[in-house]
Design a protein around this nucleic acid. Structure first.
Lengths: 337, 337
DNA sequence: CTGAAAGCGCTTACAG
DNA sequence: CTGAAAGCGCTTACAG
């Protein structure tokens, strides 16, 4: 069942049927429109989008690329709740706007450009991190959106959250609850995003006239395992730390676990603040106080900027957006005033 | 840059270039192959897969459909860790086999057939639940794979896990630890999957000569909130229940929370067993003992069956597979022997 | 308001 | 081993 079949049944040309299907109704009389729609319905005709893409030079497909720093090619990137949440939101936004969503995970050496050209993609979103941006930004066949990138290609849509403010808030929150010796957990060096957060931590200390103490910096990878190591070390260091700020909920949960393994009671012996506000913050004991980035908002913002760029070729608002951040209070911080 | 351009540069026909690209090397001399590959590389030529799909009647795209019982069209289905994990695994399997993955979430009234025809999809996977199977199975334009379906369309690839055994194991586990009054939490009625699990629960009781007591059945929706309600009610019922089996980790976590809110200490006053073995089982206090379905295995099995069906038109092994299930011991069950 | 022609970039089926 | 022809199902650009 093709356009031609419908045209024949209706006794019109393919052009007319095509116009009806694409809603170019000003070009066709109402009677014809009705008749054609009727026939389309009866026959269960469905347009072939491969053919449409081939001629129209636009596929209506947006590619979501999920990548990782490490090149474990067998890793399941969608296991990261942060990533899968974003993908879910974006698929919804794309769909609402008539786009189709392809997903693909890649390793560092994958040639993304080939993929984009293969399908004539209308746009592409990169989810963490951005190793590919350097060369893609110069030769991408379609508009690009990324998150949390600190490289500054002007042309790329980039939505991040206020990382510096995030750690400023969590550190300040501990200070306001009487904490003075506050540990920071993350091996931030060489990582622009984590460095921003580290700067927020330092600034909060400064603003409260608390001297920075490098002994309180625990340079562990901000994962569950890294958190456990940090928590153990903090407990055994006995250097008077009463509160910990982290750069990931999962790491904060690890810190609680590690400290507990050393005999600490949480939060009484150690207050902990997370980062991300993942769902699982409410499943831990104690429930985790954390910094929330509005992930939904980030995903929607990026989607809409990308769609606008695809449709109009430009953006009417700035294409680098920094979203706000806030503290979510739960029960993992104790006041020691 | 098209096939024709490459052919012109190489001084051969498009056919020859096409054969080289598609690895039909027995049809082309080695010298020609080398020369053509060289030119392709130099020019950065990338085949247009829309054109290929159009002529070859096969798109190499597999559609993953994510749907829900309820029709909240704004729900983010990928927020479910179970679903997003599966999607991640399947994307990997498809990619390894040369397929592209589209994802789309749908509500009950969405016409999936149109979508499949639109892109000439090679296959489709449905992730929970299967409202669409009834009519799709009769008219689907491509092979279908589903999970955990208890409808029995012979032609559909269906991978489920041994639900009855799952609850049998978790109930038996509690019995072996001295529990006699064991609660079951889930409103199983009308839900074939949950009913299977309920049957497993009953069978374990029978096998140990423990009388079934309907007072111990707590018909709450197996979510976090449902679990909290169940946990509260179990605690306040004071009917001697010492252990609880559930049909979802998230529900088990809720049960622990609800019982705690009523003053119970977990696991000393109440032992709890989950279902699914989600990552977050290890983040709770106590860490959750649970039933593990090998989700990776399920996803890979379904993917491979689907790919085989696509490539050969049939399956060399049964297309209804039931995967095994096991208990993962952690700390949420206490022995009262 | 409607249509005939050309073409998008490939592959299939056939001929040599 | 190589090629010329036809066609996949659409849309664009033009003509009337």
């Amino acid at each position: 069942m093709t356009l031609k079949d419908i045209a024949d049944k209706a006794g019109v040309s393919m052009m007319t049927v095509s116009n009806v299907i694409n809603g170019k109704n000003n070009k066709v009389s109402e009677k014809t429109i009705e008749r054609i729609n009727q026939i389309i319905k009866e026959c269960g005709y469905v347009p072939n989008l491969n053919a449409r893409s081939l001629t129209s030079k636009s596929s209506n497909i947006i590619q979501i690329i999920i990548s990782s720093e490490d090149t474990y090619s067998d890793e399941n990137f969608l296991e990261n709740p942060y990533i899968s949440y974003m993908v879910g939101i974006m698929e919804r936004e794309f769909r609402k706007n008539g786009f189709y969503t392809m997903i693909r995970s890649i390793s560092n050496d994958t040639d993304v450009n080939t993929l984009l050209k293969n399908w004539n993609m209308d746009g592409v979103v990169f989810l963490y991190p951005n190793n590919h941006l350097d060369y893609l930004s110069k030769s991408s066949p379609c508009p690009i959106a990324v998150f949390d990138s600190y490289t500054d290609f002007k042309d790329i849509i980039n939505v991040s959250s206020d990382d510096e403010k995030g750690l400023y808030l969590s550190t300040k929150y501990l200070i306001n609850h009487g904490h003075r010796k506050i540990a920071f957990v993350a091996d931030y060096e060489g990582n622009p995003l984590l460095t921003k957060r580290f700067i927020g931590y330092k600034k909060a200390l400064e603003d409260s006239n608390i001297e920075f103490n490098s002994d309180f910096i625990y340079k562990f990878y901000p994962s569950y395992e890294g958190g456990i190591s940090a928590g153990k070390k903090i407990a055994s260091d006995k250097n008077g730390v009463t509160g910990v700020v982290t750069t990931a909920d999962i790491c904060a949960i690890g810190v609680m676990e590690g400290a507990r393994l050393e005999g600490y009671r949480i939060p009484f012996d150690l207050s902990v603040v997370g980062y991300d506000n993942l769902k699982l913050c409410q499943y831990t004991t104690p429930k985790l106080t954390t910094v929330s980035q509005d992930v939904t908002n980030k995903a929607i913002t990026a989607s809409n900027l990308l769609i606008e760029r695809i449709k109009t070729g430009t953006n009417s608002t700035p294409n680098h957006v920094i979203t706000d951040v806030e503290i979510i209070e739960r029960h993992s911080v104790v006041s020691i005033l």
